[in-house]
Structure formats: structure tokens, C-alpha cells
Design a protein around this nucleic acid. Structure first.
Length: 821
DNA sequence: TAATTCGCTAGACCGA
DNA sequence: TCGGTCTAGCGAA
């Protein structure tokens, strides 16, 4: 451990594992204090960085283990001595066997020298006659370490060593975390195949964006201020290694590095006999189902593509496509189109336009960097919350975040984790779904002076207020049975002892409120705000994930009755609120799960807020109704079948901002021409109060379509291909378009977003559908876009205003406004 | 191998 | 050619 002896404090960055002399060893990567600082971003060579800041500690005293739960008839002591003597099936000798108690149940804790032995032992141990079940038998080893040691990554950490230099203690301590050093990488490859193949196609350039400078290494005789020409691929790879080592990063961003850049880098390095080493260790590609993950020793590889997908799932931002440029535009409102693979092939063939190639290569790293830096605070907060390295949380799903958080609390409370369900249990759970939230049928029409109220974090607040948790469900105490936590479903939750879920949720909710308070107290423009915003975002994400997992059939802590109780209470409280509003003299026009719309009439915002206050007095615990806003106008439309449509409405506030919910305008599977026309119509109707103008806009759009000069990009319909094209029962337009493209030799991946246009040629709509790239400008079915896109998007709006739009159906031959006006 | 249910709409498909 | 039913996708919360 050597020269770091003087300092035993640092920031824990990563935990990994390796095997040494037949023993599983934990590797801890800790950022020690940086001495001095490198020159930032000047010149073409990174200047020498400070002395390597990463400390590598090893813990050799943490054997992997799991628990055995014994059958009721088994004698724990006898079995303990038996297991101590015995060699397990497969010739495995346990390292340690101990008897222990959890929640008043005896368990045997069985430890092994290596992870491989633990894994191999499971089947045999499971089949012993005295074994009822194995517990905590498939917890990843490094996660187990963080759980048991209660260590939190990215927080200050202190450790001590024995005189022999072995790790004695390690713990998380209070203190500030210094900012992380981040950089980004992007590669370009050359190949004429449909998709690049690492075994065949070379890397032609690599761009790097680090605090020590920006650089493109290109395998060509081309140089400029940021580009260095290299003789060949090997040289490009070697230069990259050197540059990255000197850049001394904590975090390296890529965009899809897991599935593209790193598989390439690993394979091409191998073929060129170049050792990949960015200053500390090599790069590992870990298979995970059909996916791959690229893990770099000592540096956190944050795949920004994975991160953006995580954030998109939590609706932090919305983008129909997930490529770098689309995401940039969705998040920052800017982002230039990158070179296509075809452009790159052409450039490389002719060796003309290398400046462009280098520029785009570098631009992509800049975009990746911007996105990464923007959301790193959120990711860091999640990492701290669930006590896992950035690398792991970067690739996690909602249920994994929740599961990990609950595991930490379980360890703290000395509880055993429930086991994951087997396939039969999953199937049984799937066939028995729970009832969801309440949606009130709206009163169709154009309303004036609307107030919108909503429950702040509805499900979490119900869970906290009624102590809902699988471990408090139907507790044994008689008074609880008829207490305040008796749910409308008839089940009840303990009123004496807080449950696992409630404890965790309350902690997160309190943290979120504290962050909000800090934000309110922080002056505008303070750089601290960025981090606070990120933290708040992260807390919200995790907070909102708990309810869903309770009803998720594969979840360890699945509890149908808990989930049912939550939704039953949610329906109860929203209905209750609607009633109270009516009693107070408001007319309620709509409600969906946690929100409530009512007509204010002659009352003021103060009146509404006073009403909200009254409601809050009557709500239990941490439940809270909030005043969301006041609106000048709101529109609900009638469906084809005559009832008012739920989950679609439009609002205009007193600052003339338009909010559109559920309508075609927000749907990616509708053409831009239809969406934009709908938005303009809603704007005229709700914001400007000018329906005649709205009508004229539609006629004008229909005219443009008929003339045949609407550009392609306004006609594209986006739809995701959710399975292989041959796996569909019916051939929808996007499937038909994909099949045609496949016949032309295009490779189409499952899950990809297809952009298609309804052309003039063909009988059915599917016949006419072609992927955008195969359609010439001007080749579109004007009738389709008029009758099936534009008119359906606007006619229901006009219908609510009493405007006869039958002239639209006939293609805008007439211009009358019918009954209106 | 990883959160839920509610709801709308389209276009294909099928039988009369 | 019609009308009903089913498949599929997407959004709200």
C-alpha cells in the first residue's frame, strides 16, 4: 500500500473483485487528495498530471457467503457440526460455517473461498434434507461488500491498515466530496458492411475530450490544431492510451460505449497487440444477457446513452429518438446533425473531407460530455442513495434501484431479504393484476377559469402515512386491525412499528424536502443550484419507483395486498377531495389518479388555496394536496362513441402558455403536419380565443397538402418496431415498411424507431408505407394525410366549439363556419 | 432479468 | 363494402 500511508482518507470511487491464490479479494479504488493541478485544456499535449490520485486497497478478509434456512424439524446444532466436517457435493469445502439468528429464526451462514465455489455449492446444499431454502444466495459479491460494510461510494472514506499493510477497517465519514474529473471518448470506424464489425472494420479515428485538452487521433496524414495524424490504427490506439492515462480521469463518458466503442476498442487493440490501459488497469467486457457492459478498472465508464435511457424512462426529458443529436436537441434545444456512416465511408475512401470527419468526431465527444456533466449530479445522488458505484447505477432499472435501497435498510435492521420468486410464482402473480387509480370522466367542452390541484407524491405519501410495507401487512396486534391503517380493501397495516418501506420512503421524502428548502435559500445563478437540482431529481426518481415495484411480479418484496391497499386509498382520497370540492361550491370537471380539475367561477386563487389548506387538515400524515395552477381556459373533447375522452386535454394559463396533454400533438406516431396543425388550432382556440382563424389554418394546411409540396420531414410517422417483423400477427404500416426495407437489404434491429411515410403508390395503408429514406420528396398520399392525420387531430376540437367541420372532410371546398360565429 | 394500471386510437382482419 | 373485433403502440399518472 506503500506511500499513501501518511493519508488514510479519500473518496471511494469503485469496488471490484478478483481472485488471488484461490481466494476472492475485494478491490477498493479510492481517490486520494490530488496534489497540484494539471494545466486545463491548453496545448495539444496534456501536461503532466498530479501524482496519480487513485489508491488501490484490497480486502482479503471478506469471504462470499449465503444463508441456509433449516426445516422446522432440523436440529441446528447437529447440522452445524455435520456441515463443518463434511465436504459438499462437488468436493467443495466451506471456508466457514456459523449458526445465527435472524428475525427469531435460526440460519446457517456458510462462507466460501471463492465466488465460483459459492455458485457451484448452491445446487447441492439446496437439496439437503434439512434445507428449507437458501437465502441471499445470489447477491453480487461487490454489492454484498458495500451492503455489509455500509460503505457509500462518492463520499469521504477512512481506513486503517494492520502493521503488515493489510486492510483493517474501512468506513464512510462526514465531509465534502471534491468534484470528479470527467472526460469523453468517441470512435469512428471504417467498413462497407451494413453495420460495423469489430473483427473486420478498423478504427480510423478516436476523439477525446478531457480537462487536459481535446484531441482527435486519426489514422491518416492529416493534422490541424486539435487533430494528430497517425500512421495507422495501432498508433491511434497507442496515442489514445497515453492521452487518457495522462488525463487522470475519474469518469469517462461515451455514447453507447457498452455496445459500440468499447467492443471495438477491445477487439482492435487485441488485433494490433496494443494493451488497453488508461492509467490503472484494463477494460473488461462483461456479458449481461444479450447486452454487454464495458468496465474500466479504476475509472467509472458512464455510458451516457444508457443514462439517457434511464432518465427518459423517468420522464426527465422526452425524445422520440435516442441518438446523440436527437437527445441533445431534446435536452438543450441544439445539436448539429452528425455524419452518417455512409459519409464516413465516402470520406475515408476518397480521403477528402478529413477535416469534417475529425470535427464531427470531436463534436460528438463534446455533446456526450455536455449531457454527461448535466446529469452527473443526479446519477451521483442515486449512487449515494443506493450505495453503489456510478458504473452500476448507470445501467440499473427502477426495480433494481428500489431493491438495492431496501437491501441496505434490511441489513441495517437485521432482516433477511425475501427471495426472488420462481417462474411459477411469477406467472401466478401476473394473472392477478391489481386495480389502479381513479379516472373521472371529464365534462366535455371549453371551460373557463379552471384550477388544478394535485397530490404531492401521492403513492409514496400514502405508503408513509398508512405505514404500508410487506412486513407491516396484517400484523398480529389486535388494535391495528381496526386502526387508522385499515385500508378500504379490508387489510390493515401495523400502527406500532414502522415498516421497511415506510422508513426508507420517509427518509427520501425528508431529503427531498430538505433539498428543496436549500434550493429556495440559494440565490439564483449559484453553481450549487445545479447539484441541488440533480439531487432533487434523483430523489424524485427513486421515491416514485417504490409503488410500482410492489406490484411487479418479479420483485423480491412483491406484495399484492400492499399494492392494492395503496391504490384503494388513492381512489378513496381523490374521490373524497372531489366531494369536498363540490361541497365547497366548486364544480369538478376532471380527475386522474392524483389530480383534480375544478371550475373556480368568481372565486380567487386565495380561495382555492384556502380550500387546499382545509383539505390538508383532513388528510392523514404526510399526504398533501397542492395548488398546481390556475387556467384561463381548458378544453376536453368528446370521443367518437360519445363519451368525453379521458387523459386528453389542453389548458391555457393567464400568461398564455399552452399545455397539451394526451392529444396527437404529443404523440410521436403522428406526422408533424398533423401535430403542428393541431397545436396551432389549440393555440387559436385557447390562447387567442379565435376559432375562425383556427379553421382557416386547417383549410390552409389541407391546401398545402393537396398541392403536393409538403416536405418529407413533416410527413414522417415514427413507430417503434417492438419485435421481429415476422413475429407480428397483423402487418401494421410500420411493419410493412420495415419488411420492404429488409427485402432491399437493410438491417433493422428490434426496438429501433422507424420513420415512415404513406406514399401515393399502393392499395392499403400498409402497401403505401415506406421508410423515410426510400421516399422521394413529394411522393405522398395527400388524401391519407388530410383524412387520416390532419382532420382527426382537429375535428373533435371544432366539434366542442359547435363548429361544423364537414367542409374539411370534403377537402376544404367550402369555407363556412356552420353554426359558429 | 428487472416498476404499475388506465385509456385512446389506428389499422388490419374477418365474416356477412 | 360494411361493421365489429383484435392487435399494436403510445401516452397519463
Amino acid at each position: 500500500m506503500g506511500p499513501q500511508k501518511q493519508s488514510n482518507k479519500g473518496v471511494l470511487l469503485d469496488v471490484q473483485t478478483h481472485e488471488h491464490e484461490g481466494k476472492a479479494v475485494i478491490d477498493l479504488y479510492i481517490r486520494g487528495p490530488r496534489v497540484g493541478s494539471p494545466h486545463e485544456g491548453q496545448g495539444d499535449e496534456p501536461s503532466l498530471p498530479p501524482p496519480a490520485g487513485i489508491i488501490h486497497l484490497m480486502d482479503r478478509e471478506f469471504p462470499p457467503y449465503y444463508y441456509i434456512r433449516l426445516t422446522p424439524s432440523a436440529n441446528p446444532k447437529t447440522i452445524l457440526s455435520q456441515l463443518k466436517e463434511e465436504t459438499l457435493p462437488g468436493g467443495i469445502k466451506p471456508l466457514r460455517v456459523e449458526l445465527m439468528e435472524r428475525e427469531e429464526q435460526p440460519y446457517i451462514k456458510i462462507s466460501f473461498s471463492t465466488i465460483a465455489e459459492l455458485v457451484r455449492s448452491r445446487e447441492g446444499v439446496k437439496n439437503y434434507p434439512f434445507t428449507e431454502a437458501l437465502y441471499e444466495a445470489n447477491i453480487p459479491y461487490t454489492k454484498r461488500y458495500l451492503l455489509d460494510k455500509q460503505l457509500i461510494p462518492y463520499t469521504p472514506t477512512e481506513w486503517s491498515l494492520t502493521p503488515e499493510g493489510r486492510l483493517k477497517t474501512i468506513r464512510t465519514i462526514e465531509g465534502e466530496t471534491p468534484p470528479l474529473r470527467t472526460g469523453s471518448l468517441d470512435i469512428e470506424t471504417y467498413g462497407t458492411h451494413a453495420a460495423p464489425i469489430p473483427e473486420k472494420d478498423p478504427i480510423i479515428s478516436i476523439a477525446l475530450n478531457t480537462p487536459a485538452g481535446k484531441k482527435v487521433f486519426i489514422a491518416a496524414a492529416y493534422e490541424n490544431e486539435f487533430t494528430q495524424g497517425c500512421m495507422n490504427e495501432k498508433k491511434v490506439l497507442e496515442q489514445t492510451n497515453t492521452f487518457l492515462s495522462l488525463a487522470d480521469l475519474d469518469v469517462l463518458y461515451t455514447y453507447n460505449g457498452d455496445r459500440f466503442d468499447f467492443p471495438f476498442l477491445v477487439e482492435r487493440s487485441h488485433r494490433n497487440h496494443v494493451k488497453m490501459d488508461y492509467g490503472f488497469g484494463d477494460v473488461q467486457l462483461v456479458g449481461k444477457g444479450n447486452e454487454r457492459e464495458a468496465r474500466i478498472h479504476g475509472i467509472q465508464h458512464v455510458d451516457v446513452y444508457q443514462l439517457m435511457r434511464l432518465l427518459a424512462r423517468f420522464q426527465v426529458f422526452k425524445s422520440p429518438r435516442m441518438d446523440l443529436e436527437s437527445v441533445m436537441r431534446a435536452v438543450f434545444g441544439r445539436g448539429e446533425k452528425s455524419l452518417t456512416h455512409k459519409d464516413i465511408v465516402e470520406t475515408w475512401k476518397t480521403q477528402k473531407g478529413l477535416d469534417q470527419l475529425a470535427k464531427y468526431n470531436l463534436t460528438d465527444t463534446e455533446y456526450t460530455q455536455e449531457l454527461g456533466d448535466e446529469f452527473l449530479p443526479s446519477l451521483l445522488e442515486i449512487a449515494r442513495l443506493v450505495h453503489l458505484p456510478l458504473f452500476d447505477v448507470n445501467r440499473m432499472t427502477a426495480s433494481q434501484l428500489v431493491e438495492t435501497t431496501l437491501m441496505h435498510e434490511s441489513v441495517k435492521q437485521g432482516r433477511m431479504f425475501p427471495n426472488s420468486p420462481n417462474d411459477d410464482q411469477v406467472r401466478a402473480r401476473e394473472t392477478n393484476p391489481i386495480e389502479g387509480g381513479y379516472v373521472k370522466e371529464p365534462v366535455a367542452g371549453l371551460h373557463e377559469n379552471l384550477a388544478v390541484l394535485d397530490f404531492r407524491s401521492l403513492h409514496p405519501s400514502i405508503m408513509i402515512s398508512h405505514n404500508i410495507s410487506p412486513d407491516t401487512l396484517d400484523c398480529v396486534h389486535p388494535p391495528c386491525k381496526e386502526g387508522v391503517n385499515k385500508s378500504p380493501t379490508g387489510h390493515w397495516f401495523c400502527t406500532k412499528k414502522k415498516g421497511l418501506f415506510s422508513v426508507v420512503l420517509e427518509r427520501i421524502l425528508d431529503a427531498r424536502i430538505a433539498v428543496q428548502k436549500k434550493m429556495d435559500d440559494t440565490p439564483k445563478g449559484d453553481p450549487q443550484l445545479v447539484f441541488l437540482k440533480g439531487r432533487k431529481q434523483a430523489l424524485k426518481i427513486v421515491l416514485n419507483s417504490f409503488f410500482g415495484t410492489l406490484a411487479y411480479p418479479r420483485f423480491r418484496w412483491y406484495s399484492r395486498e400492499s399494492a392494492r391497499a395503496i391504490t384503494a386509498w388513492s381512489r378513496h382520497y381523490i374521490r373524497q377531495t372531489l366531494n369536498w370540492a363540490e361541497e365547497a361550491g366548486y364544480k369538478t370537471v376532471y380527475a386522474d389518479t392524483d389530480s383534480c380539475f375544478m371550475i373556480v367561477r368568481e372565486r380567487t386563487e386565495q380561495d382555492v388555496c384556502a380550500f387546499v389548506k382545509q383539505v390538508n387538515k383532513r388528510l392523514p400524515g404526510r399526504m398533501e394536496l397542492e395548488f398546481e395552477g390556475l387556467y384561463k381556459r381548458g378544453l376536453f373533447v368528446t370521443k367518437k362513441e360519445g363519451h368525453a375522452a379521458k387523459k386528453r386535454y389542453a389548458l391555457a394559463d393567464y400568461e398564455n402558455n399552452l399545455t397539451i396533454v394526451g392529444f396527437e400533438y404529443v404523440r410521436r406516431d403522428v406526422s408533424i403536419i398533423a401535430r403542428e396543425t393541431q397545436k396551432r388550432v389549440l393555440e387559436e382556440v385557447l390562447v387567442k380565443g379565435n376559432p375562425e382563424r383556427a379553421h382557416a389554418i386547417v383549410l390552409e394546411t389541407i391546401g398545402r397538402l393537396k398541392e403536393g409540396n409538403v416536405p418529407k420531414k413533416e410527413l414522417v410517422i415514427l413507430t417503434q418496431l417492438q419485435r421481429r417483423t415476422d413475429a407480428y400477427v397483423t402487418t401494421a404500416p410500420h411493419v410493412a415498411a420495415a419488411q420492404k426495407a429488409q427485402k432491399r437489404g437493410k438491417e433493422i434491429l428490434v426496438g429501433s424507431m422507424l420513420g415512415f411515410i404513406i406514399t401515393a403508390k399502393g392499395k392499403t395503408i400498409s402497401d403505401k408505407a415506406e421508410l423515410e429514406e426510400f421516399v422521394k420528396e413529394g411522393d405522398y398520399d395527400a388524401e391519407y394525410y388530410i383524412q387520416n392525420q390532419v382532420i382527426p387531430a382537429v375535428e373533435k376540437i371544432f366539434a366542442e366549439l359547435g363548429i361544423d367541420s364537414t367542409d374539411l372532410e370534403r377537402g376544404g371546398k367550402q369555407t363556412g363556419l356552420g353554426a359558429f360565429g
